[in-house]
Design a protein around this nucleic acid. Structure first.
Lengths: 179, 179
DNA sequence: ACTATATATCTTAGTTCTGAGAGACATATC
DNA sequence: GATATGTCTCTCAGAACTAAGATATATAGT
């Protein structure tokens, strides 16, 4: 094997490392890849705004999501919250611990299942979410205002279907219910 | 065997402590909030698949994004890669270090600016991305196939505009001027 | 009742990344 | 040429998680 220097690109057509390989795929593949890219970028861009907004109140995005869920849905089992906001089981313990430490949430026993715990807002937590939610919602409205209302609804519709089909297309390890 | 999966809502829970406060906002606000939710969920669902796919080759999502960018665009300055994949400045150093340790990427000096470094694929890195990219692209195509081609293009179009407008809408820089 | 398996949460160790700042270099202005 | 200011990468501390296993409890089959 000969070690090649980067400077001696001349007569040889073997693709050297560091040279570009423009994307050459079918239109279907290209559309799928592009959708994945713009989906990630749009989510990151919106997320950055939302994250910065809740950070002003000393909260992370995930913490806020928990508070909001508990406010709008009422007390929930930790596992329910976990599946709703999509974190690991260790993650939900960690997050609820932190919200308890901040005095915003409390754990409550579940009378019908002694393994389970409810997470519920404290009065302080409820007061906080009630106080910051309106400006928060207005801010999200501004951030997505690059699309008008019908476009937002159409995008939401498409994304909902995309999310559902992607979530249910469990590739491996999950039972493939072959009936 | 009846592997019965418990659905989220089938626990017979008596409405214990925290009471629910159903969402009551204007249709505009509701559309914006819903868009934000389905955007996050769709991204997470697709991301989980892509992440699991590249993990089979010992790579994280971010590492793969770097390799792919270097393969398709050629060598790039670290700062260019950083802005492209949206990580912090410390993050790009960390990630490139790790890819260098894996033998997939190398740093190269920039002749016109001695502060800057290029990241470039090694031959091994290029061989790897060439080997795994086709199946990777096919997998993404499958994951987003819940939408047909015109729908994918429409979603991509909407998301591109959403991403751009969200990214450019400078958050009212909440510097709080010494609050 | 006993056993096996499933579920709910928690613990621990480790991974991935961020944010603030430092050092080296570049560039514009005087 | 000297100085100020901006840019690029790197370092370091630590935040925000995840993965895997531990523990306690529940539930179904025998």
């Amino acid at each position: 094997m000969s070690l090649r220097r980067k400077s001696d690109e001349d007569t040889d057509r073997t693709p050297l490392p560091g040279t570009a390989h423009p994307l050459e795929v079918s239109p279907e593949t290209e559309a799928a890849l592009k959708l994945w890219v713009v989906l990630s970028r749009a989510q990151a861009a919106v997320s950055a705004h939302v994250s910065a907004d809740v950070a002003r109140h000393g909260l992370t995005l995930t913490e806020f999501a928990i508070l909001e869920a508990l406010y709008h849905r009422g007390a929930m089992l930790l596992g329910e919250v976990q599946r709703r906001i999509l974190v690991s089981s260790g993650g939900i313990t960690f997050l609820v611990d932190r919200l308890v430490a901040k005095g915003l949430v409390e754990r409550q026993e579940c009378p019908s299942d002694r393994r389970a715990r409810y997470a519920a807002l404290t009065e302080e937590g409820e007061a906080m979410i009630r106080r910051i939610f309106p400006a928060h919602a207005a801010m999200i409205e501004r951030v997505v205002s690059g699309l008008d209302l019908p476009e937002q609804e159409e995008a939401a519709n498409l994304l909902k279907r995309l999310g559902h089909s992607a979530a249910s297309s469990d590739t491996k390890e999950v039972t493939f219910s072959n009936a």
